[in-house]
Amino acid sequence: MGKLLSTVFAVALATAITGTAAGQQYPDRPVKMIVPWAAGGDTDNIFRPFAVELQKHLGQPVVIANVAGASGTVGAREAKAAAPDGYTLYAVHDYIHLVHYAGITDVKYTDFDPICLVSATPSVLTASAKTPWKTWKEMAEDAKKRPGQITVGATLGSTSHIFPALIEKAAGIKFKYVSYDGLAPRMNALLGGHIDLTDSNLTQKGKVEAGLLRFLAIASEKRNPDMPDVPTLKELGMNIVFEVLRGVVVPKGTPAPVRAKLGDACAKAAKEPAFAQSMKLQGTTAAYLDAAAYAKFLDKIDGENKAIMTELGLIKK
């Protein structure tokens, strides 16, 4: 037994030494990407195809770890605590600002170094086919008659809540919110008519064409070529452009050469035609920004989100 043990330790030691020597050649082992939401959600659906492209250019497998829970803050904490060696990536979207200002977590976007922005998904206000409204106007009129009675399914405090809240303010109407975390449960409830409205995206196009759902308005700058009949909120007189933007960051303190390597791979991956194609299926556009531009961008939307949360009275003192 003793002999066996010493052999085992000798082997372990040898590998440890060769392991550090190889460490100069980043990456020499699989890389973990933390997605702070459950598998099968829209964030997961966007980063899975991205990970496939990323590993092609990184030369090592990129393994997705869904660390879900508590509005994405469990994953955030774990990513923040991870070693800044480039072997832990963190997939984020705007929620990271929102949950911070809502006081749910102390993790802030400045705890990370940005690598790149990957994609943009415009929000679409979607109504159940069991409601009488065919257009935005009919809905708005009905909402004025019955304030606080039209039900909206939303992940409270996250993007699907902020988006209808912005509409409430701009149109001068009042909704009633019901908690449905994630797009899939919201769609089930919308199809069954258990909620009236929700924030969705162009992935639901098929159901709209089948007459199961109705798109009332899209929150992009221009109409989408795939759904030319859906008006933008801007056309309807509300100055709202609302896109969910997703990107990759690493824990603060990750060495610059490692970040550069990741940035390169990310740039190539985000520009792959296959990635653009799979993003289209997700109602999303591939929207690449490099580390510097992404950093500036994060600063900008952090300010905006703070303002929105303050306006809506969701901010914690």
């Binding site: 372990a12 030691l13 590998t15 440890a16 392991g19 550090t20 699989p30 973990k32 497998p61 393994v63």
Partner: peptide, 13 residues
């Protein structure tokens, strides 16, 4: 199966 198993902090292995 690409399941990454824990590495030792003492051994690095």
């Amino acid at each position: 199966l690409l399941v990454l198993l824990p590495r030792g902090r003492w051994t690095g292995f």
